[in-house]
């Protein structure tokens, strides 16, 4: 409600919107709430969203999205407990906000998360549900959800770092040509963002790196969450 008031929209506007627009409003509201929360946390000297979970940073190393094919079609699991199928995921909700996926994700133990993430099929299911309902770019890249999980991110934290893909345009620094999410430079951009996340030791480093990445790509509309 606070977000709707702030943006001059009414609850009727929200109710009359199509599902994708509703999701967009929800995403922006989450981002707004997260910004307020982070600013409050920053004022208190806190540097992270939620307490870190048991470290699992030595989990499967893969490069989904931009890696060689060999990394895609093989089961990259290095975890002996990863013999789980999609049907074996107990309690997973079908879609965010509708079936308790966020609760399921947030309450996984480190061992459970490692097992599901270490299996290609169950990892893809988690990735699809984190990307739902579509139409957004997740700055906390879904393909790196294991890292964000280890930093204590909840599903809602990941969703709060989203930008409508229609609003994500850039000048590709490698060619000088205009591009956008899903368009020219999208592969290079996701590759660069993925490496930035991989090389960041904490959320503060990532935020600094994102600002540099934004400047390099001429992206004017970085979420306020990472502009602070």
């Amino acid at each position: 409600m606070e977000y709707l008031k702030r943006t001059g929209q009414s609850i009727e506007d929200y109710r009359n919107a199509d599902p994708r627009t509703q999701a967009e409003i929800e995403g922006r509201a989450l981002g707004y709430a997260a910004t307020i929360a982070l600013e409050a946390a920053a004022a208190k000297g806190a540097g992270r969203l939620t307490p870190e979970r048991t470290p699992d940073t030595d989990g499967p190393d893969y490069n989904e999205g931009n890696g060689p094919d060999e990394g895609v079609d093989q089961d990259v699991s290095q975890n002996a407990n990863s013999q789980v199928s999609v049907d074996d995921i107990p309690g997973i909700g079908p879609t965010p906000g509708q079936g308790g996926f966020a609760d399921w994700f947030n309450n996984l133990s480190a061992e459970e998360f490692a097992a599901y993430w270490g299996n290609t099929k169950t990892r893809e299911k988690i990735q699809r549900l984190l990307r739902a309902p579509g139409g957004f770019h997740e700055w906390a890249m879904v393909s790196r959800a294991d890292k964000f999980y280890s930093w204590g991110f909840t599903a809602n934290d990941i969703w709060s770092f989203r930008t409508n893909i229609k609003n994500l345009t850039w000048i590709n620094p490698n060619t000088g040509l205009p591009g956008r999410h899903g368009g020219h430079g999208s592969g290079a951009f996701h590759n660069e963002l993925g490496r930035l996340i991989d090389n960041s030791k904490n959320i503060g480093e990532l935020q600094s790196g994102l600002i540099s990445l934004g400047h390099r790509w001429g992206i004017p509309n970085l979420p306020s969450l990472i502009r602070r």
Binding site: G65, N66, R128, G185, F189
Partner: peptide, 9 residues
């Protein structure tokens, strides 16, 4: 198979 962002333009 699953198509990730960055796998298409």
């Amino acid at each position: 198979n699953y198509i990730a962002p960055g796998d298409f333009e």
